[in-house]
Nucleic acid binder design. Sequence first.
DNA 1: TATTGTTATACTCTATAACTATA
DNA 2: TATAGTTATAGAGTATAACAATA
Lengths: 158, 158
Amino acid sequence: MAATLERESPAADVHLGELRDSLGFLMRLGQLRVFEDYFEALGPYGMRPGEFSVLVVIGHNPGIRQGVLAARLMIKRAHITKVIRGLEDQGLVTRRIPDEDRRVVELTLSRKGQAFVAERAEALHAFDFSVPAGMTCKERDQLVHLLQKLLGLSKGDT
Amino acid sequence: MAATLERESPAADVHLGELRDSLGFLMRLGQLRVFEDYFEALGPYGMRPGEFSVLVVIGHNPGIRQGVLAARLMIKRAHITKVIRGLEDQGLVTRRIPDEDRRVVELTLSRKGQAFVAERAEALHAFDFSVPAGMTCKERDQLVHLLQKLLGLSKGDT
DNA sequence: TATTGTTATACTCTATAACTATA
DNA sequence: TATAGTTATAGAGTATAACAATA
């Protein structure tokens, strides 16, 4: 009963047909499922997945250019602008326009941003090491590994 | 160059830190990646993933109740109402309120809806059997299998 | 009272294109 | 001319709560 947020109907025996083997369909539903668990575990900490991943990546790449960040996170340029401004307004992120190329924006975590991430790192870590219902720990690791391959992260850098 | 829709920056060597092993993060990016391929392959056919999966499931479950459909597809009741009305306006779906329980709505594909799905089934099938760049066919199947486990579809019905 | 679906509202995310300033 | 970022606008998707009809 903790599986779905809104399980007012028994969706048990529904025939999915070809969707049952569709990677796109399974990825979509799988993401919803995992995010459900994510919000259950981390919602109280006031972190939304998208924004938090932006903070983590900036934290690991001080001075990263906004466009590079957007490309890596598959966020559109027009959208990342809004996200970054939001984080800047909260005092979590610092923008800097370097003299070498005054078109680009370099991003860094502020003291407050570093603290914000640090405070939530443990909860995120705990969640990431939890095992989804119905899977073994080994299967979870295998899933993570295959997703890394799908995304071309297998032997790339951390 | 076919990988990302908007690759205006070399997002190559970005450090992801703990995100690299985060199931939620990987599922989110993975879904975006797969949907990118999906739109590239099936966009011309005028199918959006969400709506199309609704049609396929109704096709495989004639007379399915709206609430059951929503629960299975993890769509909120308030949202499925709009989706179904849109499909009804296009003449693809038929709604029926049975006399046994006049609260519920039973959904069926119209002739036109059946044709719509049939016309696109082959393209979908071809896409679902394609292998994402960087993966072997075996790895793709393994990924599908693990996602089915994550979603509790392993031994359930079709 | 509980259930099913609907309506209304607001917010997030995405998509697109036009714009600026810099190179 | 090309690039990096911004702005504006529209649309899709989602979340929430209040509501009507029916059970």
